[in-house]
Write a protein that binds this DNA or RNA. Structure first.
Lengths: 181, 181
DNA sequence: TGACAAACTTACTGACCAGTAAGTAAAATC
DNA sequence: GATTTTACTTACTGGTCAGTAAGTTTGTCA
């Protein structure tokens, strides 16, 4: 599942095969099919695990009790680490790009994952604005969608342009959001 | 080439085949190979045409002489139309997601396209700030990267969540950028 | 010790894919 | 009117892919 997750983020759903995983694990492809009969089930399990992990984090007091600014820093750090780790891409973004050729169950998982990310980000932005840490106009949901979309997009852009532009995006968000001290 | 461009934006480079194009045109796949010997050359030609088209637009007085605010509206409208057209995705974003499995010539084309979009957007933002129409902090290049990345990401997100979030992103950008009248 | 199940391997199938070689029909050129 | 070029078709190749059926090894438990 670790391998499948990496392959999803590095090459996409259509870009990896049972042979990739089998070779890396030094087993035959049938051994992978034994644990995950179909590619759909494999990817579904990977996304479900990813979602569970995110829920665990945000409900853990190490994150939950952080002030909004540090919460956002933690969120950004997920994407910074994703970029640093072999130029990976956001799992949701990878799946959305291939959405049209995905089995239904994967579409549902992708939608659920995206909504969960968005919901948490929106709540964090709202909390930050109410406590006077963040400034932005309009609805928190719009700003949340903008930030999530830009992080997804920036990770992809970094593939073509390198990490500089990606870090510039993160920096710009902080500048835009944070009230002058 | 129109069909190939659509397929790239709807299914990605790994997601379409000569058979798709041949069937839609009611010819045999060898007929497509006659005009574009390899898939790489086909995609290259499509991206080159896309780049040329963009350069034509931005150098045409209908766009070039527009005030910054209307320039930006025009730019947004490209993405709005892309979304409306069968839920397509930004060509650059689609290619970046599959970057790791792309032939070298396509990587170069993708980088060139992305840089051209970024360069124009950056210049437009700068012009707008200088003429007092736009407000944003920091370097125009950072804001340009943020906006481009978010449009790419928002088009993908719209596949999973529908058009609402996408339009919210565009609206949020306008709110963030425009000085209160 | 023997029954059973978990975790594989071997060997395969049918589908799809990019790409090719050889042939054909019609139009343009000389 | 003959030649050449353009735009195909027919028929194929070798490779990759997800998925399967049947057999094998290894460890567990009665």
């Amino acid at each position: 599942m670790d391998l499948a997750e990496s392959l999803l983020q590095e090459r996409g759903f259509n870009g990896f095969s049972y042979a990739h995983i089998a070779n890396d694990l030094d087993v035959k492809n049938a051994a992978v099919h034994y644990h995950f009969p179909t590619k759909e089930e494999l990817a579904c399990a990977v996304i479900q695990r990813y979602r569970d992990r995110f829920q665990l984090w945000i409900n853990n007091s190490r994150i939950k009790d952080l002030p909004p600014r540090e919460k956002l820093d933690w969120f950004f750090s997920i994407y910074i680490n994703t970029r640093a780790d072999n130029g990976k891409v956001c799992l949701a973004g990878s799946l959305e790009t291939e959405f049209n050729s995905l089995p239904v169950s994967l579409r549902e998982q992708t939608e659920a994952l995206t909504r969960e990310l968005l919901t948490w980000l929106q709540a964090t932005l709202q909390e930050g604005r109410e406590t006077g840490i963040f400034q932005f106009s309009g609805d928190p949901s719009g700003k949340a969608a903008l930030i999530l979309a830009s992080l997804q997009g920036a990770l992809q852009m970094a593939r073509a342009l390198g990490s500089d532009q990606f870090h510039a995006v993160v920096k710009q968000h902080k500048q835009d959001l944070l009230l002058p001290a």
